[in-house]
């Protein structure tokens, strides 16, 4: 089997909240231009793992992490944290567009908040192409200057995706982006993912086995803070190599 190109590699990541160790020696290689699903029972450290990648984890008082994260081969600890985050976008569990910004501004939030001034034409162009990428352009074309929070929940979440990819990140982290949405909006976002992989690499945290099977090319299975299995989704779902994965897939854990 041919080796995929790797966009991000973690080596022996350990993470703590205060004295509680949450992640144990997590080493993973995330393929480029693919959707990698992160699965596992509730509380196993999925969120914590993705948050160590853009170092949001370390912002919680008392939280820390060790280990190496290589982004396209570069050790992110040698980079300014701000640059790491510009290259790793994130979409959160609940849609969280900035309530003080319009739809237009929300798409450009990454530029506005990092002090980058764009010429008007460039800005317009980024807004349009990005909103097209997330399939929102036709829906919000006439509402560009309304508050971002005036959109429906599903639209807000796609706006948040647009906000993340407008910065042209190498990798986008999705932390259960559909868990707060209705089934219709969920399937719209699921369909989006494969389009997005032509340009971006995606890590997609999900609770649902079905969802992981539907959207992902690769899957990482976490349990009690350990990465117990990693592989192509088809392979893992058909023939899990780890007993714990097998039990989980057959529904033995919540």
């Amino acid at each position: 089997m041919e080796e995929p190109v790797i966009v991000l590699e973690t080596q022996k990541i350990n993470a703590w909240f205060g004295k509680d160790q949450i992640l144990f020696d997590v080493s993973a290689r995330i393929p480029k231009n693919r959707v990698t699903a992160i699965m596992g029972p509730s509380g196993c450290g999925k969120t914590t793992f993705v948050r160590t990648l853009n170092r949001l984890h370390q912002m919680t008082p008392g939280a820390r992490a060790t280990g190496t994260v290589l982004l396209e081969g570069i050790d992110t600890s040698t980079m300014d944290v701000v640059d790491v985050r510009k290259h790793i976008g994130m979409v959160f569990q609940r849609p969280n567009p900035f309530p003080t910004m319009t739809v237009y501004e929300n798409v450009l939030a990454g530029y506005l908040l990092t002090g980058q001034r764009l010429p008007r034409q460039k800005a317009d162009q980024i807004v349009e192409t990005t909103l097209r990428k997330v399939g929102l352009w036709s829906e919000v074309q006439s509402k560009l200057f309304k508050a971002g929070t005036s959109l429906s929940g599903g639209q807000q979440q796609r706006l948040c995706i647009a906000r993340a990819i407008a910065m042209e990140p190498a990798l986008v982290l999705f932390d259960e982006p559909t868990s707060a949405l209705d089934p219709k909006s969920t399937s719209v976002i699921e369909e989006l993912l494969s389009d997005l992989t032509t340009e971006y690499s995606i890590i997609f945290v999900t609770h649902g086995l079905q969802q992981a099977a539907r959207v992902s090319d690769y899957v990482a299975f976490f349990m009690l803070g350990e990465l117990v299995e990693f592989g192509e989704t088809k392979r893992v779902f058909v023939g899990p190599q780890d007993k714990r994965t097998e039990d989980y897939l057959s529904g033995k854990y919540g």
Binding site: N54, L56, M59, V82, D83, V84, R85, K86, G89, M90, F92, R94, N96, F98, P99, A109, G110, L113, T114, C160, R163, A164, M167
Partner: peptide, 13 residues
């Protein structure tokens, strides 16, 4: 806090 995190995640200082 979700709003602040979203901003930090975009690379804001």
């Amino acid at each position: 806090s979700g709003l602040k995190e979203a901003a930090y995640a975009l690379g804001a200082r």
